[in-house]
């Protein structure tokens, strides 16, 4: 038997990973594409219906409400946690010793299970009966639970998700900022620049690639957000927190309209795809570097 060539070995090395990804991700994704043009309950044979699913979606107010909620979510996450993390990271920069301790604390909520975080917030913070909110409400100022109010529910869930997420951004920005050449910082201080001027003229330009990448990733994940919404409000009250992801999930597993679920999934992916194209271009530039 002839021994395998070096190249043949290397081909064999990528086969398991490629096979796994194709079987679990790529082929089912193609099936999703097909299903979006079908009426399918997941069990019996699917029937081709052309663009019916998309037409039904575009005529559905909930669909547009979900898109609007996803856009709001993206705007919230592109600003609030970004700003907090940029401030926190630049403050840690001048505290190189305690900075390491701070970043571990900030990261704690990020490494905990969304299930745990959601149940904790729902019960011991936001519950009007047993939570901190109820305690304040009963003893000091009357407050209603922001989760039961359609006008505030989205912000309340976003608040919990930001609590869990901002530490991640801080750690990433802190790592990026530490790459700032020391000479640049010292030169700026010698010239009498204040903290803000140093941030704006030295630190920020140095972390621009990382900042750009995070903006893209946050945009992508804002259109995919699922865990905290589904755990805390299931899209309610009165669809006030419905997202494309929860809307699709209910189509698939509550009413078994898999074709419609697939159509929503394609719309979600389309938003993600736009951001992904930007992401791939940015990553490629760095991979080739």
């Amino acid at each position: 038997m002839k021994p395998l060539s070096q190249r043949a070995y290397h081909v064999l090395f990528v086969v398991p990973a490629l096979l796994l990804s194709v079987a679990i991700v790529l082929l089912p994704a193609l099936l999703t594409f097909g299903a979006s043009f079908s009426r399918w309950d997941g069990v019996s044979a699917p029937a081709f219906v052309g663009f019916d699913n998309f037409e039904a979606l575009f005529a559905d107010n909930v669909f547009w409400a979900a898109i609007s909620n996803n856009i709001q979510w993206a705007l919230i996450f592109l600003t609030i946690p970004m700003a907090i993390a940029l401030v926190a990271a630049s403050l840690l920069l001048s505290r190189r010793k305690s900075g390491a301790v701070y970043q571990v604390i900030f990261l704690l909520p990020y490494v905990l299970a969304p299930v745990a975080n959601a149940v904790i917030w729902q019960n011991i913070i936001l519950s009007p009966v047993s939570g901190l909110l109820g305690f304040v409400s009963k003893n000091f100022i009357p407050l209603s639970s922001p989760l039961t109010e359609p006008s505030t529910a989205l912000y309340a869930v976003a608040g919990v998700d930001i609590w869990h997420f901002w530490g991640y951004l801080t750690v990433v920005f802190f790592a990026a900022m530490r790459q700032t050449p020391e000479e640049q910082l010292e030169a700026a201080f010698l010239e009498g620049a204040n903290g803000w001027q140093v941030f704006w003229n030295v630190t920020l330009p140095n972390i621009l690639p990382t900042l750009g990448l995070m903006l893209v990733l946050v945009t992508i994940f804002s259109f995919l957000t699922f865990d905290y919404i589904y755990l805390i409000t299931q899209g309610g009250p009165a669809r006030a927190t419905e997202m494309l992801s929860t809307y699709a999930y209910k189509f698939a597993f509550t009413s078994f309209q898999v074709g419609k679920a697939a159509a929503v999934a394609l719309v979600m992916s389309f938003f993600g795809l736009i951001a992904s194209i930007v992401y791939v271009r940015m990553s490629r530039a760095s991979l080739e570097a």
Binding site: I24, V25, P28, A29, T32, F223, F253, A261, M268, S269
Partner: peptide
């Protein structure tokens, strides 16, 4: 960055 929902339903 592929959304889980893009392959979840048929896979299930």
């Amino acid at each position: 960055t592929v959304p889980i929902q893009l392959f979840l339903f048929p896979l299930y």
